[in-house]
Nucleic acid binder design. Sequence first.
DNA 1: ACCCAGGCGGGCG
DNA 2: CGCCCGCATGGG
Length: 300
Amino acid sequence: MPNYSIAKNRIRASELDIVHTVESAQPLTFHADYDFANGSLEYATNFAVTRAKFKGGPANATVELESSDGAREFAQRFRLGDDMGEIYQHISTDASMDAAIKRYRGMRVTLNDPWETTLCFIMSQFNNVKRIRLIIRRFIDEFGTPINDGNGGPARKSFPTSARLTEFSEKDFRRCGAGFRAKYIASAAEFCTNNMDLYGLTGKSYDNVKASLMEISGVGDKVADCIALMGYGKMEAFPIDVWVKRTLERIYFKGEKKRPAELHDFADERWSNWRGYAQQYLFHYARNNSLYGAKDRKLV
DNA sequence: ACCCAGGCGGGCG
DNA sequence: CGCCCGCATGGG
């Protein structure tokens, strides 16, 4: 039985919780607008605007798109083809994971444009989610190209391509609040336009993709894993940020400090090829629980 | 005021 | 290799 179905502009999907998905700090949510009162999401992609309205509970969600054009892309972007039952079975290895899954059931890892993902996660280093959103929005405002959504709605701009950003300089990026990351972004935009084809990496192995990404200045182990996971759909990727590190140490190592390499090995063994999903649930769980040092928060 | 944030590159031992 | 440091900036 398929995990979702599309009929014209209506999508039915099991295990899709849009709220937790947009709150879990993935590239799409760094600039998409979600209206909590209406249960509607709006985002720009591929020079088109997609508007979606969500109905029903997360267990059996219905998504109504403004037009049928974006349906296939929506399904791809929210990974509706994933068998969440199978995934949960793989990653529910203990009481902590069970709790995270129970609380955030239906939260998806999203699949985003590789360059968009690269820029967002270069921006993420030594930064916080709220400020990443702020800076990314400024980048879209400043450097994005206007989209005619044919609806008379609020103006939208496309996410600036790497080629587009080569028309600007480190100084311009700094003006958007990128700070010391501005030089990485200038370098990455140039490199990804002239030296590396990010879109040519699709279909390569996780190890291959990650190694290539790490050739980009400003992309290290953690950021490369984020891009592999959310820009290429590599579920073997396990990004270890401060939240995930703290949480793993706390839950599985009695609070002892562990080096990333050891935590990578631990995750590989424990969650096998679905560790990307395990990571996203751990990350979101940690960020929303004071137990792990988080302050109370709603949407950031 | 002080502290932290989805880390990284470079320099040192 | 591993370790340590500085880094821009806005919000709690």
